Computed example of a mutant assay.
Amino acid sequence: MRVSSNAFEEGGWIPKRYTGRGEDISPALHIEDIPNQTKSFIITLDDASHPIFPNYNHWIIWNIPVCSDIPESVPKGEVVSELSGAIQGIAYGRHCYRGPKPPLKTTHNYTFTIYALCDLIDLPAASTKKEVLKQASNLILDQASLTGKFQSHRNESEDAG
């Protein structure tokens, strides 16, 4: 399985609009080579560079229906009707996407991970990433990640040249 985004490339800069310093909306994600037995997806977003809490979880959403394209700007809320009732749990974003927002001029790496599951997960929206992945551990068929970087006070116009 592979995941990509039209917003940024693997290892590239995450545009400000997808961060806590911009519009704070989730980027569109494209999934390829989905296992045939897949019944649902989980998506997590983690700050892989957090100095105190390694892999600090920013977003957890599960029971996403099988599709090759996750749309941009997943709405806030425990239940996402636009994604057939997918559930958003408790992370830095409580029942919503919360994008990168590192302090000062530090550059942090952020990893989106997609898990393909052979079933749905029956957990309340008050669940955390740890609880969701524990429940999903025997259901995971495959996973793929996309990592980007962000610096809060970076000038994006530098990319144009």
Rank of each mutant, 00 (worst) to 15 (best):
L45T: 01
F112T: 03
I114Q: 10
P100F: 00
E131P: 05
L83V: 05
A160K: 10
R98M: 11
T107N: 03
L104E: 11
L123E: 10
I87C: 04
I61T: 06
S157H: 08
C96P: 02
S68W: 10
P71V: 09
L120P: 00
H50Q: 02
R94K: 13
P100Q: 04
K129S: 10
D46V: 11
Y56R: 07
K149T: 14
C96D: 04
R98S: 12
Y18F: 15
D122H: 09
P65D: 04
G148W: 06
D69T: 14
Y18A: 10
P15K: 09
Q135K: 08
H58C: 09
T111N: 00
V132Q: 00
G89W: 02
K16R: 15
S152K: 08
F8S: 06
A86R: 01
I90A: 07
P102H: 12
M1Q: 08
M1L: 14
I42P: 09
K134Q: 11
P100G: 04
D46L: 07
S26F: 07
P65N: 02
A144C: 09
C118I: 01
G77H: 10
Q88R: 09
G148Q: 06
H30A: 12
S81E: 15
V79Q: 10
F53K: 03
K129G: 03
N138R: 09
